[in-house]
């Protein structure tokens, strides 16, 4: 449940962020291509993608970051949109048929709780980490 206003008192080190799950389909990848304008055939052309290193289509990395951003918006509200930072490494690929889960945990807080640092990740149904990252937000209150 997203707090109306994310404050220093809302969060403590070790607390989990609200996780989200998404069932990935080729239709959703295609919809993201239309919304973002990124029609790289590795994402939207199964015949082309079959002949590549990946052996089939893969989701846009930015789609996975959009899922992380939804979690961070849910957790921190406006603090994520105003001063939020994310550093993400793409470690694996998401494919149609995957069930993706984004999750995170508060790792440390600084400046009397005004700056919060969390680890975040996106994993598939096998537990493979597809995106690993570090997020930072500045909190009010």
């Amino acid at each position: 449940m997203r707090p109306a206003k994310s404050t220093r008192e809302t969060w403590t080190v070790g607390r989990d962020l609200p996780s989200l799950s998404k069932a990935l389909t080729q239709e959703k990848i295609d919809a993201y291509a239309r919304a973002s304008g990124d029609f790289n055939p590795i994402h939207v052309d199964p015949a082309f993608a079959a002949g590549t290193f990946f052996g089939g289509t893969i989701a846009h990395g930015m789609l996975l970051l959009a899922y992380l951003s939804e979690m961070l918006t849910e957790a921190f509200g406006g603090a994520w949109l105003s001063g939020g930072r994310l550093k993400a490494r793409f470690k694996g690929v998401a494919r149609p048929g995957d069930t993706l889960t984004v999750r995170g945990r508060v790792e440390r807080m600084q400046d009397e709780g005004r700056r919060l640092f969390a680890t975040v990740e996106c994993v598939n149904q096998a537990g493979d980490v597809l995106v690993a990252g570090d997020a930072e937000v500045r909190l009010d209150g």
Partner: peptide, 22 residues
Amino acid sequence: MEAMGLPPGAVHGSQEFEFRRP
């Protein structure tokens, strides 16, 4: 990406963002 004219098969390795304001 359009300006770079990346070929098919280019891969996004990592990404950093800072959102200064909404």
